[in-house]
Amino acid sequence: MATPLPLQRAAALPALLGLSLLHATAAAQPAPSGGTPAADPLFAPRPAVRRAGFTAGIAGGLSLGSAAGFPNDVQKIGFQRHYTETGVGIGGGGYVWLGGVLADWLTFGGAFGGHALSAADHGSLAGGFMFHTEVFPLFSLGERWREVGVIFDAGTGVAYTTPDDSDTDVIDGALPARIGGGVFYEGIRLWKVSMGPWLYADYTWSTSVRQPGFYLGWRTALYTGP
């Protein structure tokens, strides 16, 4: 007598389950010693071709800027009779920095610097510490494009303005905030030192001061890697 079709399928079920288990076990086995799985290119390490290790540098040159604000006194901030505005002044400024190279196209560290100006019988100074980031956005294009960098800075410091004939600050920033940014080219190379022109701007502000600065000068950086 022929076995009904449902019973035939039921009888074949253990064999099918055993075959599936065999395939799963084989797939879970490690690859033979003779073959190494290919690494994901997205996470594969890449040797540095331009920048590596630690970095340190200095940048400086001509500076233009202005200052406006009040003394650091709650009884004077916001009152017109205590307000001072210097107008545009000229001076010098720059930064030094120290950090690490995270990739051929990215460095990060700390910077310290600022500018000093003379304008309208006043002397102004703004400076301090900032976190310093450099990005080389055109690095993938190769050749000279690898030497074009962009700077981003943020931190805090000091800012004050004093008349030439007095020691009393007419503007006092009281630990103001600072941001900065710029562009540079470091295609002139000597051993591990890279040099080139530098264009930069920063801005210092608090409830008692507004002080922008613009810089044009020269930059020199050391990379300890290749």
Rank of each mutant, 00 (worst) to 15 (best):
T224A: 09
H122R: 09
A48V: 04
A221E: 15
A38C: 07
P226D: 13
K192D: 14
A56R: 08
T107Y: 01
A48S: 15
G173F: 00
G92V: 03
A159G: 07
Q8K: 12
F108N: 07
T220M: 04
A159R: 02
A159C: 04
M195Y: 03
F112G: 10
V150K: 05
A31L: 10
T156P: 00
A31W: 06
V101Q: 14
T161F: 03
G99D: 12
W105S: 09
P32E: 15
G180P: 02
F139P: 03
S33N: 11
I58C: 04
D121T: 08
I171N: 12
M130Q: 09
A116L: 01
A59L: 02
P197K: 11
Q75M: 10
R46P: 00
A174T: 07
W198T: 02
G187L: 04
G61I: 02
F70G: 01
V135N: 09
G78A: 11
S118E: 13
W198P: 00
P176N: 14
V150F: 05
V148L: 09
A12W: 02
H132K: 11
G61A: 08
A159S: 12
D172G: 07
A67L: 02
R9K: 13
Q211W: 02
I58E: 08
V158W: 01
I90A: 14
D167G: 13
P137Y: 14
D202I: 01
Y95D: 05
I90K: 09
K192L: 05
R210F: 00
T220G: 05
D165Y: 03
P137I: 11
A11E: 13
G213N: 14
L17I: 04
Y83M: 05
A38P: 03
G109I: 07
P212G: 14
L98G: 14
L19K: 13
V158P: 00
G92D: 08
A201I: 01
F108T: 13
L16T: 12
G18A: 13
Y203P: 02
G61F: 03
G181N: 11
T133N: 07
F139V: 07
A11H: 06
G99C: 06
K76D: 09
P45S: 15
L222D: 04
E134K: 08
I179D: 05
S20V: 09
L64C: 02
G157C: 01
G89R: 07
A120E: 11
D40Y: 06
Q29T: 12
E134P: 00
I151Y: 12
Y203V: 07
F139Q: 14
S206E: 08
G100N: 11
P163R: 14
P4M: 14
L16K: 13
G87D: 10
M195K: 03
